[in-house]
Amino acid sequence: MIVLSNVVHHYGVRPILRGINLTIERGDVVAVVGPNGTGKSTLLGIMGGQLCPQIGQVAIDGLVRRRTIEEEQAIRRVTFFLPDYVWLPGDRSGREYLLSVGRLYGVEEFRLMDHVQRLLELFELEAMADQDLRSYSSGQKKKIALAAALVSEARYLLLDEPFSGGLDPSGILAMKRVLQRHPRRRDMTVVLTSPVPELIEEVANRVVVLKDGRVLVFETVEGIKRLTGGRGSLSDALERLIFPETIDKLDRYFQEERLPEWVDQTFNALPRDRQRLDSEAGGF
């Protein structure tokens, strides 16, 4: 379980997160969504230990992040944080890198070898597996980074935009399926960010909506749809939830231009003239 208690964080004088309170249960796949600059990556960075909040704390399985050496060490053994940009050692092969990560997280050697091979096959990296990472394309590097997250077998995966960064459709499909299956089977908790509601709808069972540094909603996908009238996809629901004023503006923007009311009434009172005018104006 991940518990965020009154987390406040800002860069310099600009506040990013203002009093975030969240409880993420074991086995959940939670997506964090919100407008750009609303603090999604910051929230994930705080959960992942990259950042330290000014106020508040993050607790994972009852252990508080960055409180003591023992607690932080225990947390690090069970969490894997993957930011949207990752630096990989260029002089290592993909296989070596995955093996190193697996060993780091204490995966048994015999299982590790097999798991690495299966991941390389899953992400179609077999041909590149024994070449240096510096020769990989950006999409391949992203795949290796995702594979590293999976090979760690960490109980908590914190993934910042796992579906971006040049991932091809097969990689997206592989990652989607894994995220749909692993949490249920392995009691794994995943927190991810993504700007693509369609992907979120397929993998996440709960959604955190951030706006202006605060949690707007923390609900299931269906719950969010119900909140916003129950019509359409998650994308429509999020639009209505996050940008209600924008929706109104769009409605007004796309409305046809209307004549003043008294003109309209006069026009309607003259049916013959109206027909003639209609025909002359070409139906305007």
Partner: peptide, 23 residues
Amino acid sequence: DPEDLGDLGYPLEQLRPLHSWEL
């Protein structure tokens, strides 16, 4: 333990569990 697996890049190198000798 694998005392040192070499530099694992960012952010693993910063956020990894520390080895026994580092503690």
